[in-house]
């Protein structure tokens, strides 16, 4: 990340990051900061909220209103903050276990309400901080400390989940395809409504090590080779795409936003004398 952005937005005294070498989380964080800097938002209007896990530590490094909540519940706090003060820009960062395992219920309901909150999911297929246990996005067959014979639970596709639940901006990116990620996060942040960016982030320590990708480079190479962009698949047949993971923007629609509806259809209606 550029020095001036680092200086402007990071709480210098809290560095270095706790993240391991080769972790993708710092790359995603830089992407978020570049987007915020590009918009010229004031630091006082930004709230960044997290749950528990490696990703949960993200807000601590940032000079905004920051809140490190309980495991899986970040979206509930975010909902309260946004609902109480819609002028604040509310960003939630969550891990995969955080967002769709323990926090799955909150995730689907935040999406259903279409509340103006951006959820960025640091998806590394694993519970990293607690020692590599299987998460709801661990691919079938992959090894985790609680799946020593390979995971058998089918993983969630967070993009499809978010679309199915009513999110109005849904995208997927990776910590390797950085310019594309910058673009997706930017669009998610300015989107009015519940926006989700599922970001694949390597975890060499807890996931790669157990799954034949010990080195940092191998982890990023895997992303490079196994991901294809939405624009690149145009005209391609299924066989050519194979099992590659598609990244890009999957949904970008306009729908009434929760806090606006509450104001328009409830507060304003009950407060103005009916004609």
């Amino acid at each position: 990340m550029k020095t001036e952005i680092a200086v402007k937005y990071l709480r210098q005294e809290k560095l270095p990051f706790i993240w391991c070498a080769g972790c993708g989380h710092g790359i995603i964080l830089a992407s978020i900061l570049r987007a915020i800097d590009g918009f010229g938002w004031s630091k006082d209007e930004i709230c960044i909220i997290s749950g528990i896990g490696c990703c949960g530590r993200t807000p601590g490094y940032l000079d905004f209103h920051t809140l490190h909540t309980t495991h899986g519940r970040a979206l509930t706090f975010a909902t309260g903050i946004k609902f109480a003060n819609p002028a604040l820009k509310v960003i939630v960062v969550m891990g995969d276990g955080d967002s769709v395992a323990i926090g799955g219920n909150h995730f689907i309901h935040a999406a259903r309400r279409n509340i103006d909150v951006t959820a960025i999911i640091f998806n590394n297929y694993i519970y990293g901080m607690t020692g590599g246990q299987a998460s709801p996005t661990t691919p079938v067959g992959k090894i985790a400390s609680t799946a020593p014979y390979g995971a058998i639970d089918p993983p969630f596709d967070i993009v499809e989940l978010a679309i199915g639940c009513g999110a109005t901006y849904v995208a997927r990116g990776t910590a390797f395809h950085v310019p594309a990620l910058d673009n997706l996060i930017k669009k998610a942040l300015i989107h009015k409504g519940f926006s989700v960016v599922d970001v694949l982030s390597p975890c060499p320590t807890a996931f790669g090590r157990r799954n034949t990708m010990k080195g940092v480079v191998e982890n990023f190479t895997w992303l490079k080779e196994n991901v294809i962009s939405k624009s690149a698949i145009k005209g391609k047949k299924g066989a050519e795409i194979g099992k590659r993971i598609i990244i890009g923007e999957f949904l970008n629609i306009e729908k009434p936003e929760y806090t606006e509806i509450y104001k328009r259809d409830i507060i304003d209606k009950v407060r103005s004398p009916s004609p």
Partner: peptide
């Protein structure tokens, strides 16, 4: 859980 979470969020504002 979410109910109290939302209240704590709003209380922080």
């Amino acid at each position: 859980i979410a109910s109290l979470g939302a209240c704590l969020g709003s209380s922080l504002t």
